[in-house]
């Protein structure tokens, strides 16, 4: 068991050493995942609100598909994005395969259904409470959706965190479309996989510790914001 303790000690020493290679990997991970969450939040919340408030043929089927899409295997998404972005693929002209942009695309496809499905549930619950009142005030469906997104904003932050957690923890898709190129597309999860296979456990563990710390910090901040908002806004 001493090798675990040694590795952990090495990991903390590495994390505290200010190793530029390590922090570049952490920075790229955050950059890619936050960009993906920003895009997926915009698209996912709009889809969620539209499905929650709208009444259209096939709505139930859309809900089932959205819920099912939350469990899409990342490697399958990676493969599809790879085929789309490869030189012979329909979007090959973009030339973004094996770049962080391709990783953002893959993560957006991965987490948009999660954000859409969970935000649909949050907004629909609020719609049940608000519907008669908003209709009584003559609020249009589009304006109602806007109001509901704003009024459920603190719950939606939790939804976005779920998306961010999924994006940051994901390895299969970004490995396929990013290629895990050192200094270009290497992120925490792909680096952990690589360093573990090489036997460099301190670096793998250091990255793991930082990954956990980042996720814990973001969730802690979101929890504090939510608690504050509940006290202030009810």
């Amino acid at each position: 068991m001493s090798w675990i303790a040694d590795s952990l000690a090495g990991a903390f020493a590495l994390a505290a050493s200010g190793d530029l290679r390590l922090y570049a990997i952490v920075a790229l991970s955050l950059e890619v995942s936050l960009a993906a969450v920003a895009i997926a939040a915009l698209v996912g919340c709009l889809i969620g609100a539209a499905v929650a408030v709208g009444r259209f043929p096939g709505r139930r089927l859309v809900i089932v598909v959205l819920n099912a899409a939350m469990g899409l295997p990342p490697v399958v998404i990676g493969l599809v994005v790879y085929l789309l972005l490869s030189r012979a693929g329909p979007l090959g002209a973009l030339g973004i395969l094996f770049t962080p942009a391709a990783m953002v695309v893959a993560q957006v496809l991965l987490i948009t259904p999660i954000i859409a499905a969970l935000s649909r549930q949050v907004i629909e619950d609020a719609w049940r409470e608000y519907e008669e009142q908003l209709r009584s005030l003559g609020v249009s469906t589009v304006a109602a959706a806007r109001t509901l997104i704003w009024d459920t904003r603190y719950s939606l932050v939790t939804v976005l965190l779920a998306g961010l957690g999924r994006a940051m923890a994901e390895v299969g898709a970004v490995m396929i479309v990013g290629g895990n190129i050192d200094g270009v597309t290497r992120v925490m999860t792909t680096a952990i996989a690589l360093e573990t296979s090489k036997g460099d456990l301190p670096l793998a563990l250091a990255l793991g510790v930082i990954l956990l710390a980042v996720v814990l910090s973001l969730n802690g901040i979101a929890y504090a914001v939510r608690e504050w908002s509940v006290r202030r806004h009810g």
Partner: peptide, 11 residues
């Protein structure tokens, strides 16, 4: 119309 349970927005 005013309902039995008032629905106020988070503002």
């Amino acid at each position: 119309m005013v309902f039995q349970r008032p629905v106020l927005l988070r503002r």
